[in-house]
Design a protein around this nucleic acid. Structure first.
Lengths: 184, 184, 184, 184
DNA sequence: GATGAATGAGAATTCATTCAT
DNA sequence: GATGAATGAATTCTCATTCAT
C-alpha cells in the first residue's frame, strides 16, 4: 500500500464531502461527492477504504481545523478573561465563516458512523482549552466546560446566521453568558 | 364506518421510529420501523403519507412531549429562580429518562427533512419558557436564552450519561452555569 | 350472491374506469377509480370480483356501446353505399364525441388482461356490419373488412382530433378510402 | 478508459424489453427485463436513466427498425404501384416475422409514457413513404395515408397470424384494399 | 351492502463497492 | 493509479385484495 499520490486529490474529496454532508447529511452518496470533487467514483476508494472511513477522517480533519483556528495567535501570556475571549472569538469566527464545515461537523457528530475512537481523538483537540478553563474556579469539570463552550458557540453562530443584523450583539451576548456562567 | 385508524397503532409506529432513529439516524428504514412496530410495511403509509411526513410528525410529537414534561406541575407563583430550577429539572429528567427520545430529537433536529414549518411549530413549545426567562434581565434575547437552555440541558444529559456516578453533580453544575450565565 | 343493489353504482365505476384507463392505461389503480366513482375502494370488489373482471366487463360494455351507436337508426332498406355511409358516420361520431371511451377501448384492446372469450364476444358486435359488408363483392373476407373498418375509423378520428380544422375533410376522405378499398 | 458501455448489452436490454413488453405491456418490470437480458437489475439504469427513457428509446429503435426494413431495396425508379407494393410487402414481412417487435410497438404506441417528441421523431421515419404516396392523386393527405398504411398493414398481419392458412390471401387482399382506396 | 384500514408482494430506483480496462 | 461499468441488496412507495366494523 503505497501512499496515495495526490494529497491535493484527497483534500478535494474531503472538501466535496464537507459540502455534500452539510446539505444532505451523511447520506450524501459517494457518487455525488466524487462528481463534486471532480474525481471518479472509484478514486474515492483508493483514498478511503470505505465511506465510513471517509466520514471518520473528515470528522477528524474538521475538528483539527477548528482546533487550529481556535488556538491560532493564542495569547498565552494574557489574562484569563482575555484568553477566553480570544478562544470565543476564534470559535465564532470559524463557525460563521465556514458554514459548510460547521454544518458538516454537526451532522457527523450525531452520526453513528463516527467511532468512539474518532470521538476521543476529536475531543483531544479541546484539551488545551480545557486547561485554560480549569483555571477558572468553577463547579463544572473542565471537560464539561469545554463541551458547554462548544455548544454555546454553535447556538450563537446559529442565531447570528438567523438574524444577521444582530450578529455582533449575539456574539457578545453569547460570550457574556459563557463568562458569567463560568465565573459569575 | 369501516375500521377506524388506530391511535394505538400510530403511537406504536412513532415509538418504533423513535428507537430506530435514535440508533441509526433518519436513515432508519421504514421496513425496520414497521417490524419494530409490529405492523406491516404498507401500514406505515396509511398513517403517514411519506417517510418525510412521519419524520416531521415525530419531530413535533417529541417537541410537544418535551414541552409538556417541562411545564408539568409548573409553579407559576413561585420566584423566578425556583421556576427556572423547576424547568431545568424537568428538562434534565426528560432527557435522562428518555434517552431514545432525546437522541431521536437530536437526529431530527439536524436533518434536512424537517421543514421550516415544523421547526417553527416545534419552537413554539418553548414560548412559555421564553416568557419565563425574559423576566430575568439579561443581554440575551428570550429566544436565544431558550436555545441556550436547550443546548445546555442536552450537554448536561450527555455528561450525566457518560459519568453516571457524577450525574447529580453535573445536573447541579449545569443549572448553576445556566443561572449565573443568565443573571450573574 | 344476490345481484348487486345499485346499477347506478356499477355504471359510475365503469365510467370512472373509462376515464382513468383513457389517461393512464390499464395500470389505472382501483383506488383511483373508486375515488373518481365516489365509491369506496372495497365497493369495487362487490361489483367486480377482480380488477381483470372489471377490465373485461368494461371492454364488453364499450364494444356494446359502440355497436349500439353504430347501428342506431340503421337504414336497413337503403342502398349498400348509403348503409355503409351511415355506419361510417355513426362510428366516427362515436369516436369523436367520446374520446375517453375511444381511448379506453384502444388501451383495453392491446391489454393481455382481456380474455380471448371477451374478444370474441366483443367482435360479435360487428357481425351485423359484417353481413352488410359481405354484400359488397370484394376479395376481403367480411371479418377482415370489419377489422379494417374499425382501424380506418380509429385513424380517421385520430386525425380529426389532431387537425380539428380539417375534421370534416378527414371524415369524408376516410370514408372515400374505405369505400373505394372495398368496392373500387 | 475504464470499461466502455457495451452496445451489445444495450441491445440485449432492448431485445429483452421488446419481448417482455410484447407479452405484458409497458407494465413489464425492469427486474424481469434485466433477468431476460442476463444483466443485473442495476445495469439497466446505467444504460437508461429511467424506465420511461428505456421505453422511449425502444419505441424509437423499433420505428427505426421498421423504417429501415420498409425502405430496404426500395426500387426508386420503378412505377408507383410497384413501389407501393414493395413497401407493403416489406411492412407485412416485418410485422409477420417480428411478432414481438410488432406487438411491443403497438403497446408502446398507446402508452402515455411515450413523449410527443418521441412520437414526432418516430413518425419522421415515414416521411419518405409519405412522399411516395403523395404522388398518388387522392383526397387524403400524405400523413393520413401513411397512418392508414400502417393501420392496414397491422390489421393484415393480425389476420395472417390468426389464419395462417390464408396468410397470402390476406396479404394480397390487404394490398388490394390499400391500393384501391388510394387510387381507385 | 358499504366502508376503508390492513396487508405484503412487487415496483422503480439508489448506492457502496469491486474490478476490468 | 485512475476510471466508470457492473452488481445486487436495500429503499421508499404502490396496489389489488381481504375483512373487521
Amino acid at each position: 500500500m503505497a501512499r496515495p499520490l495526490s494529497e491535493e486529490k484527497r483534500q478535494a474529496i474531503l472538501a466535496a464531502a464537507t459540502d455534500a454532508i452539510a446539505t444532505v447529511g451523511v447520506a450524501a452518496s459517494t457518487a455525488k461527492i466524487a462528481t463534486a470533487a471532480e474525481v471518479s467514483e472509484g478514486t474515492i476508494f483508493t483514498y478511503f477504504a470505505t465511506k465510513d472511513e471517509l466520514l471518520n477522517q473528515l470528522y477528524l480533519e474538521l475538528k483539527d481545523d477548528l482546533g487550529r483556528a481556535m488556538l491560532a495567535t493564542y495569547p498565552a501570556k494574557a489574562g484569563l478573561r482575555e484568553r477566553a475571549h480570544h478562544v470565543w472569538d476564534r470559535l465564532i469566527e470559524w463557525g460563521h465563516t465556514n458554514p459548510a464545515k460547521n454544518r458538516a461537523m454537526k451532522q457527523l457528530s450525531v452520526s453513528d458512523k463516527i467511532t468512539p475512537a474518532s470521538r476521543n481523538a476529536g475531543n483531544a483537540v479541546f484539551e488545551e482549552v480545557n486547561n485554560l478553563l480549569s483555571e477558572a474556579r468553577s463547579g463544572t469539570s473542565p471537560a464539561f466546560c469545554g463541551a458547554i463552550l462548544e455548544a454555546l458557540s454553535e447556538k450563537t453562530v446559529d442565531f447570528m446566521r438567523r438574524e444577521p443584523d444582530r450578529a455582533d450583539a449575539h456574539k457578545a451576548a453569547g460570550f457574556a453568558f459563557f463568562w458569567k456562567g463560568l465565573t459569575g
